[in-house]
Amino acid sequence: MGGASGPFRHRSFDADSGRWDGFPFRDGDIVISTRPRSGTTWTQMICALLIFQTPDLPAPLGRLSPWLDHLTMPRDEVYALLARQRHRRFIKTHMPLDALPVDRRVTYIVTARQPLDLAVSLYHHTTNIDIGRMRELTGNDLPTEPSAARKTLRDWLLDWISHDADPRTNPDSLPGVMRHLGGAWARRGDGNVLLIRYEDLCRDLEGQMRGLADRLGIAVPESAWPTLVRAATFERMRGGADRYVPGGGIIKSGTSFFRRGRPGAAEEILTGEELAAYRARVASLAAPDLVAWLHAPGGSGSVRLQDRR
């Protein structure tokens, strides 16, 4: 992923991929690598349900599946927390694969979401972050107000589509999102890299959970599936938001964290001409087969769980 020189190091005001350097992986570890607002918490929850096989999780999701590169918790604390875990570990990151160590014992899950819907969710998410609390936990000088709050959603979205950002230093830009997904797409034939599409989780949650269990080698009793699938629905997770949102008090409202949960938000905002401009823009940033898969209708897009090419 990182080539001969090793992983690319990404640092921001709240995260540092260098915290992965020297991390002692175990056989069977799972790393969940997503852009924010792409279904990270949903994927964590699904992994938790498959591993523990009960909705009654033994701890809050953020403790069971810590965000290793996030600066809100000291690195040594995160390492110690993971070292104490005796269950199969599943670790969160928003880093792309080329910023992470390569380990054949690890399964890397990358969850993709239609970028426009991701952007709409990101716009709303910025106003739900407690900037003061984030500054307190990281010790870094953060923005005093969310940039998205300065513009209407439509204007911000149009700027997001057209902005020619450096994808390495602006990973939440459209080029950054496509770089993250493009790196995973290029490695989709590897036996330990799985791509999951948010829209397919919406369309067929049980089928996607069964497929993921199969690829992770987790046997689930047939009688347990209805309970596990219900526990992974958007409605159930929103109802238990305080146990699932990232910890540390950085999220103002747990229910707002689970704001909508269904595809199509951007299409309700932009005109046909603006959507065409988006399609042209995204086509310039990624391989045609990735773009087609990412934007396929919910009924025809397939999770890359069975693709072992």
Rank of each mutant, 00 (worst) to 15 (best):
P143T: 08
K92H: 09
Y108Q: 08
T72I: 10
L71P: 02
M134Q: 14
T54E: 02
M73E: 15
R113Q: 08
V102E: 15
K92W: 00
R84N: 14
K92D: 04
P74N: 07
I129D: 06
T111D: 09
K92R: 09
D117R: 06
P60M: 00
T111L: 05
W67A: 10
E145K: 12
A59E: 13
M134R: 15
P58C: 09
T126V: 07
R89G: 05
Y123A: 03
P101Q: 04
P74F: 02
S121A: 06
L82H: 03
I131H: 14
L64K: 04
H70P: 10
R75V: 12
D76S: 15
A59D: 12
D130A: 10
H125P: 11
A119H: 01
L71Q: 08
H124P: 12
Q114D: 13
T127V: 12
Q53R: 10
Y79F: 15
R104T: 13
H70D: 15
V120D: 02
A83F: 01
P66M: 00
R113W: 01
E77R: 14
R88V: 04
L57H: 02
D130F: 03
D103K: 07
I109E: 00
I129T: 12
L81G: 15
R104H: 13
T111N: 11
N128E: 05
K92M: 03
T138V: 04
A83L: 02
